[in-house]
Measured scan of single mutants.
Amino acid sequence: KLETFPLDVLVNTAAEDLPRGVDPSRKENHLSDEDFKAVFGMTRSAFANLPLWKQQNLKKEKGLF
């Protein structure tokens, strides 16, 4: 399991300012399950079932792209 970080560490943070080991294209993977659901309004599995373009739009909207 990946290390999780608080939302404010990941949202609207440039790649070079992210904690070590965080993939800038997969910031959402480093949210706790609770934060993930609070941000996206759905579970990880529901998010994973969305088309890629919709996932990317949601990530942009939430500052996690």
Score class of each variant (00 low, 15 high):
41 G>C: 10
38 A>R: 13
51 P>Y: 01
4 T>C: 09
19 P>S: 03
41 G>D: 09
20 R>S: 15
11 V>L: 13
53 W>V: 09
40 F>A: 00
31 L>C: 02
50 L>E: 07
42 M>I: 08
42 M>E: 00
27 K>S: 05
20 R>T: 15
38 A>N: 13
57 N>E: 15
56 Q>E: 13
7 L>V: 09
34 E>T: 10
52 L>G: 09
9 V>T: 08
16 E>D: 11
4 T>Y: 15
25 S>P: 02
48 A>D: 10
60 K>W: 11
46 A>S: 10
10 L>R: 02
24 P>F: 04
38 A>K: 12
32 S>N: 10
2 L>M: 12
5 F>W: 12
26 R>T: 08
44 R>N: 01
32 S>I: 04
36 F>W: 02
25 S>N: 14
55 Q>R: 09
6 P>C: 05
64 L>W: 08
38 A>E: 13
45 S>I: 14
51 P>G: 04
11 V>A: 11
18 L>N: 04
23 D>M: 05
10 L>W: 01
29 N>H: 12
23 D>P: 03
9 V>S: 08
23 D>Q: 04
4 T>P: 07
63 G>T: 01
11 V>S: 07
39 V>K: 01
19 P>H: 04
27 K>T: 09
50 L>K: 01
26 R>I: 05
1 K>W: 10
4 T>F: 15
53 W>P: 07
50 L>V: 02
19 P>V: 02
19 P>L: 04
32 S>Q: 04
26 R>M: 09
29 N>I: 09
9 V>K: 09
54 K>I: 13
43 T>S: 13
38 A>V: 11
60 K>T: 09
6 P>N: 05
57 N>A: 14
34 E>C: 07
35 D>M: 06
21 G>I: 07
4 T>N: 07
57 N>K: 14
32 S>W: 01
46 A>N: 09
37 K>I: 14
45 S>C: 14
42 M>G: 00
61 E>Q: 12
52 L>T: 09
43 T>A: 09
24 P>W: 03
49 N>I: 12
42 M>Y: 05
28 E>Q: 04
10 L>I: 05
33 D>H: 06
27 K>I: 15
61 E>A: 12
46 A>L: 09
58 L>H: 03
30 H>V: 03
55 Q>Y: 01
65 F>V: 10
10 L>T: 02
35 D>S: 05
43 T>Q: 07
13 T>R: 10
42 M>P: 00
41 G>N: 13
9 V>F: 15
56 Q>M: 14
